[in-house]
């Protein structure tokens, strides 16, 4: 199976029977292979509908969706779905099956041998941060966050080139959600799949996405770009309002102080704030505001000073 797939939405329109307004209106955008693409927007924006069109859980009226150049209409829905990982908010683990049996659902449908399935289950449990010894336990024995990890492992089981995630962390507490967000980003770097991720949470979209597609009411694409570009140049008032007035700070949160050019350390007082390389520029600026300084000193893990980040540097970042 291909490591990642390119997805093209080509003038897709969807209307639900008995409703005047379209759920999706003339939706066109391309997701390059390996991209983590977040669909975000208010309710009624059609993000979940757009997601479910891709694996044909919802039929569409006109236009086309292509995966690696091939229309999804050319494949039987069942075959199509077996090649696409699917993760939903309520997880939907089979309560009567062990975690291992849940994970190997698609591989079993695809006729993998028992040995290959067992090896894959162990590999996936480790990948999503669970104990491979948990394969014999039942979903009811796990917490919500652990269940969603299992759901993720199940979606990845047959190594699909595309992963669809429908508000996967929406039902989790903030701490668990944040931990899983970080882990899914890490996983995405490791497995390099194309991901389409639906959320209504703009913070989550900015944190997770390589690209963000913002949908407004009526299923119209308001803007499709990188998080940084959207925060820097919102396409219109709707997008500007949706991403919030603190968009400058949100942009700074996308950068880590270790990744931006630093100036030499100037004459500093002992109480000049010191931050680690992994600190975001946003947090560095927050420290400056808090302490009344116009700079922070960036230090490496071993405590050596790497340089200084000034408020002016942060402003320059925003101008980029």
């Amino acid at each position: 199976m291909a490591p990642a797939a390119e997805i093209v939405f080509d003038r897709v329109t969807k209307r639900y029977a008995g409703r005047d307004a379209a759920a999706l209106q003339d939706l066109s955008f391309e997701i390059p292979a390996g991209t983590f693409c977040v669909l975000v927007g208010p309710s009624g924006g059609g993000k979940t509908t757009a997601l479910k069109l891709v694996n044909r859980l919802v039929p569409f009226d006109s236009g086309d969706i292509r995966i690696d150049g091939r229309s999804i209409r050319d494949l039987a829905p069942v075959e199509l779905r077996r090649g696409i990982g699917y993760v939903i908010q309520q997880v939907g683990l089979f309560p009567h099956m062990t975690v291992g049996a849940n994970i190997e659902t698609v591989p079993r449908l695809l006729g993998w041998s028992r040995e290959r399935r067992a090896a894959r289950v162990a590999e996936l449990l480790a990948l999503v941060g669970l104990d491979p010894a948990d394969a014999g336990r039942y979903p009811a024995e796990f917490s919500g966050g652990q269940r969603q990890r299992v759901g993720l492992a199940r979606a990845l089981a047959a190594d699909p080139p595309l992963l669809l995630m429908d508000e996967p962390f929406g039902a989790l507490d903030p701490i668990t959600r944040h931990r899983l967000q970080i882990e899914v980003r890490r996983l995405h770097r490791e497995v390099a799949k194309t991901v389409i991720f639906v959320t209504h949470d703009i913070d989550e979209a900015i944190m997770m996405g390589d690209r963000i597609a913002i949908l407004r009411e009526g299923g119209v694409l308001a803007q499709y770009d990188t998080p940084d570009a959207i925060l820097a140049h919102p396409a219109d008032d709707f997008v500007a309002a949706f991403i919030g007035e603190d968009r400058a700070l949100r942009r700074l949160a996308l950068h880590r102080v270790g990744d931006v050019p630093l100036g030499p350390v100037r004459g500093q007082t002992p109480d000049t704030p010191r931050v680690a390389m992994s600190t975001t520029v946003r947090n560095a600026v927050s420290l400056m505001v808090e302490t009344g300084r116009d700079a922070v000193v960036v230090v490496a893990d071993d405590g050596a000073e790497c340089g200084e980040l000034t408020l002016a540097d942060a402003t320059r970042l925003l101008a980029a």
């Binding site: 859980l57 077996r82 090649g83 309560p95």
Partner: peptide
């Protein structure tokens, strides 16, 4: 539960399955 059925369909289980 509906989410279990949705997951089953989404993974490509046939109706009989």
């Amino acid at each position: 539960p509906p989410e279990v059925l949705e997951a089953a369909r989404g993974m490509g289980l046939r109706r009989r399955e």
